[in-house]
Structure formats: structure tokens, C-alpha cells
Simulated scan of single mutants.
Amino acid sequence: MAEKKAFILRINPDVLKEIEMWGADEFRSTNGQIEYLLQEALKAHKRLPRKKKN
């Protein structure tokens, strides 16, 4: 698994509450849900970084 980097995120409290509830509905933590949504957005816009070959 790739190493993860921590950072501070400022977010509207109402948006955060919705993400928390959505994550709970899908059995993910809030952090996991945000990460999932970002991955899906990157995939949808073909912006995922290419995997490095060994």
C-alpha cells in the first residue's frame, strides 16, 4: 500500500456532516469516504497517476 500523507482540510460543516452520514451508510470512516470520493473524481476525469513499473 502506498504511503499516505496527512494534511489539514477546511470544509463547510454542513458538507462534512453529509460526508460523515454518507460514509456511515457505506461502512466507511469520514476520512475513507473523502478519499474514496477523491479517487472516483480523479478516475472520472482520467487524472489518476500512472502506476510505476518495478
Rank of each mutant, 00 (worst) to 15 (best):
G32W: 03
L48V: 11
T30S: 04
D25C: 09
L16E: 15
D25V: 04
M1Q: 05
K52S: 14
T30R: 07
E20T: 09
K43D: 10
P13E: 14
E18L: 10
V15H: 03
F27M: 08
L37M: 15
E3I: 04
A24G: 06
P13T: 13
A2S: 13
R28T: 10
K4G: 06
K52V: 14
E35G: 06
Q33Y: 00
I34N: 05
A41V: 04
R50A: 13
K52H: 11
V15Q: 08
N31D: 14
W22Y: 14
E35R: 11
A6Q: 11
I8S: 11
K43A: 14
R50C: 02
K51E: 15
Y36L: 08
I8K: 08
V15I: 15
A2M: 05
A41C: 02
M21I: 13
I11D: 05
R50K: 15
I19F: 03
A41R: 06
G23R: 03
I11A: 10
A6F: 02
A24M: 12
L38Q: 05
P49F: 01
A44I: 01
K53C: 03
E35S: 15
R10L: 06
Q39A: 14
G32Y: 08
D14V: 07
L16F: 03
Q39I: 12
K52F: 08
I11K: 01
V15C: 02
T30K: 12
E20N: 08
D14I: 06
